[in-house]
């Protein structure tokens, strides 16, 4: 391992950690928000099951309506797997963070991961394009993609963002933070309804 790659690795991981700490602090100091779960580190396969079962358990315990619990679970699965599939890998590791918090009758799920700077304009365009679609157009895009698309080498079906947007009914905010000549942090926050049964 060269000193340069170690430097990049450390800087990138630190940048994600700083982003995570700032986001968690903001939630904790917001009296109307309740932090449910948070994780920052290198994402591995088992994280999908681990993090989503915590979320599901919490929502069931609070007796939210099943439809909302299911939407939250599905959205969290896609967002976490999005990190694993599309997050930049640094020395075979995928740094990222995941935060869930509730606010009144809504649940927010926030994720962040690294992406190469070259991918930023492509992703901005893709999200903007999808956000401009009406629900029926989004649905049609999903069916077209499902029918004609194939699974990429990374294991994605190209349907993740479409599904996330559809589940949260377009309530998604994204942020790109440039951290070096090579990488940016891509953060996505979805807001979903939560009503008691």
């Amino acid at each position: 391992m060269s000193k340069v790659s170690l430097h990049i690795s450390k800087n990138s991981t630190n940048a994600i950690e700083t982003f995570y700490k700032t986001a968690v602090k903001k939630i904790k100091t917001d009296s109307s928000a309740t932090l449910l779960d948070s994780f920052c580190g290198h994402f591995i396969n088992q994280d999908t099951e681990r993090l989503t079962s915590v979320l599901e358990g919490h929502l069931h315990k609070k007796n939210y309506i099943k439809k909302h619990v299911k939407s939250a679970f599905s959205t969290a699965v896609e967002m976490i797997q999005n990190i694993r599939l599309h997050g930049s890998r640094i020395e075979q590791k995928t740094p990222g963070c995941y935060i869930t918090f509730s606010e009144g009758s809504s649940l927010s799920i926030q994720t962040a991961n690294l992406i190469s700077n070259a991918e930023v304009p492509v992703l901005i365009q893709r999200i903007s394009d999808l956000k401009s679609l009406q629900n029926t157009q989004l649905k049609q895009r999903y069916i077209d993609r499902l029918a004609k698309g194939s699974i990429s080498l990374k294991g994605g079906a190209g349907l993740g963002l479409l599904t996330i947007l559809s589940k949260c009914n377009g309530k998604i905010s994204t942020k790109f933070v440039n951290i070096s000549n090579e990488y940016s942090i891509f953060s996505m926050t979805t807001t979903l309804p939560l009503e008691h049964a």
Binding site: K70, E78, L146, A157, L162
Partner: peptide, 13 residues
């Protein structure tokens, strides 16, 4: 199915 992710949706197809 109770849940399926998007890559499963393609495999189910």
């Amino acid at each position: 199915l109770e849940y399926f992710n998007t890559s499963s949706s393609k495999c189910i197809l």
